[in-house]
Structures are given as C-alpha cells and as structure tokens.
Design a protein around this nucleic acid. Structure first.
Lengths: 193, 193
DNA sequence: GCGATACTTTGTCGATCGTTCCAGATAGTG
DNA sequence: CACTATCTGGAACGATCGACAAAGTATCGC
C-alpha cells in the first residue's frame, strides 16, 4: 500500500454536481470543476477518467440523492394520495428552494446529453422507469382499494404523473413561482379522481 | 448602394435552428453553424453580431414557427376540448415525428440558457405566457358554457396544460414512445372533466 | 528510517473555441 | 466602363478547451 487519497470523493462529486446543474454539461469546463472541487485536474482525471466520467458519477449521485428517496417514499406503504402529493410538493420545494438556480440534472441531461451519450440515456431511462414502476405499484393497489379512479390504467396514470413532474421542472426554470407551481401540481393530482 | 446580400437570412436561421436543437447552445460551435448555413463566419457575424445573436434569432423563429400557430389554433373559435386535444396530439407528433432527435428549443433554452441570458429568459416567459393566456381565454369561456369543470380556475388549468406539454417534451427526449406519450396526454386532458 | 507505492500538483500539449480582420468578388451608381 | 460600397469566404487572433505527462509529496509495509 501507499499514500491514501486525501480528498473525499463524494464531496467532490457533490461540488461538481452544483456546477453541472447551473452551467450544464458543455457550459462547464474542467477549470470550473477544478475550482469547485478544489482538486487539480490531474486528480480528477485519476479518479474519474474524463469529464464524461465525472458527469456520469454526478448523475448517479443525483439519482441516488433524489430519485431513490422518492421511490422509497412511494413504497413506504402510506396512503397513495398523500404520498404522491408529498412527492409533488417536495419537487416544487426543490425547484423553488434556493435562489441558486440549480436546474434538475435529469431534465438537463435529457435535453443536452441523452442524444449524445448512450450511457446517459440508459441512466435516464432507468431512473424514470423505476419511478414509474413505484408509482404503478402504488396506484394499482389504490385502484383495488377503490381509492382512486379506474378510468385509466395504473400504467398510464404513473407515466402521466412522471410527465407532470418533469413539466414542473421546466416551468420552474422559466418562472419559479412557488404558488403557481403548487396549483399546477394540485391540478395534476385531480387526475386520480 | 452596392452589392446586395446573396443568401436568404431566414434559410440560414432555419439551418442554424436544427443544429441548436440537436446539439444545444454550448455544444454548437461557429464551425457547425458555418457548415449548416453554408455561410462564412464573417457573413454570420455581419448579419447577427455574435453566436448569441444568432441564437436569439433562432429562438424567435422557433416561437413564430411553433408557438404562434398553436396560439392561433387555440383562438380559432372551435370547440375547446377538440382544439386542446389537437394541440397535444400535434406536440406528440412533433416529438416523435422524425428520427433526427430534434429536441424542443423552448425546453432546451429553459434548461441551458434561461439562467445565463436574460434576453432568453424574457422570450421564454413571453412565449409560455401567451400560450397560457390563449388557453385561459378558451377555458374560461368553456367553463361559462359548462363544457369543462369549474372545480379549478381557468388560470390553473391553463398553467397545468402548459406544464404537461413541457413534460411531454422531456419524456419524449428520454423515451420517444408515441403511443405512451399519447396516453399520457389523454390523462392530462381528463383534468378538464 | 527506507524503499515502494500512489496521490497531488503543475505545466503544457494540440485542438478548438468565438471573434475579428482582410483580400477578393459582386452589384449598383454616375 | 470605372468607381465605390457592400458582401463573401477564409485566414488568423488570443483565449480556452479537455487531456496528459512528469515531478513532487505523503503514506504505507518492512
């Protein structure tokens, strides 16, 4: 063995995430990433291989940070309507939370990177799919219990809800009006009636 | 007077639009734009001033090309539900239309440019606002006629519908499944019931 | 304490970035 | 037909890009 790594990998990925979220992939330079992480470019390349490698690591952390808790919440066994409302409110909070204009990495990656990098596209599909699946399971059971409409299949409802969440991200980037976004979310939830 | 401009300005902006839609703003180089438009960089700078200038021209053309017809359709005086469904179907068609992976310039600009360039942000707000307004007028009258629900205000319904359209764009970029997107759109329309 | 190992830093690479400038080409004016 | 004003394409600018190699430094087993 020999010298151990001095910096915290997760902390570096975290710092890089903020930069990518505010500047996008192409808009972020290695210099930006060096400054944000406090690492020399050599260390970054040793740890992640390339700018793409770091971006993928950031994307994975983002998924773990935001998508996984959301899925866990949906699978917590609580009331379907309440849980889904909580997810929507949480998303609106996240959008309008700080004034740092950190856009959603998922939506940003969808627009900027999905068509350029198949590994990004895979991760995006996997993320939305796991979210849709968690919603599906929750909605299907709620339908059996007669708690929500059966006019539409649980599959369609789940896909629609994810679509609405993505839409809120976009609208929030254009006009981060918390009250308005909350009302739009409420309308979306009426589709369960 | 002297020599007249030889190339078609609109055609150049059109060609540039395809590049920006597939590569994003930062991902597009002046070299890309030169090749796509067939113009030397000197001509581009003479006509548009800068890369930003060309991007703004592209954004304006995109608004004129897609947003304006949509507003016109909404104001055509036809049945509200039918017209709105037509807008949604048209959007899904646009997303899944060709295999060239041309993402929505509005959504792309929202993610990549809105926070960097206030002129872009202004245009985005103006575009969504005019769309929301057209929807509002249509919905408010439909409410008076008892054609759609009055449980939610026309304002909220209009904002929600625009949100859904943006969401469809994002979902389409991740997974351009026409049938699925159509079903999600149908669910969104049930909010009018 | 020593050698071996692996991480960090620094400087630099060729390529490419957005932009500018210039020489040549072209069309209108007298 | 010459003159001139404007447009055109491409060369060239400094700056910055992502990537890398080499040198320096700190930690481990022994």
């Amino acid at each position: 063995m020999a010298r151990t790594r001095e910096f915290d990998l997760d902390a570096a990925v975290n710092a890089a995430m903020d930069v990518f979220r505010s500047k996008g992939y192409e808009g972020t330079s290695m210099r930006d990433l060096s400054e944000a992480t406090g690492l020399g470019s050599g260390s970054i390349y040793a740890a992640f291989g390339s700018k793409d490698g770091l971006y993928l690591a950031v994307l994975d952390l983002y998924r773990q940070r935001y998508a996984t808790p959301m899925v866990d919440l949906l699978r917590s066994g609580n009331d379907a309507r309440a849980v889904i409302r909580e997810v929507f409110i949480g998303t609106v909070d996240d959008i309008t939370g700080d004034g740092r204009h950190l856009s959603c990495l998922i939506v940003g990656a969808s627009m900027e990177r999905a068509h350029q990098d198949v590994r990004v596209a895979e991760r995006l599909r996997s993320t939305t799919q796991s979210l849709e699946l968690a919603l599906y399971d929750l909605l299907a059971e709620a339908q059996l219990r007669g708690q929500i409409t059966t006019d539409r299949s649980a599959t369609d409802l789940a896909g629609f809800l994810v679509t609405s969440l993505q839409g809120l991200r976009v609208m929030g980037a254009i006009n981060p009006d918390r009250a308005a976004l909350t009302r739009y979310a409420e309308v979306a939830l009426t589709c369960l009636d």
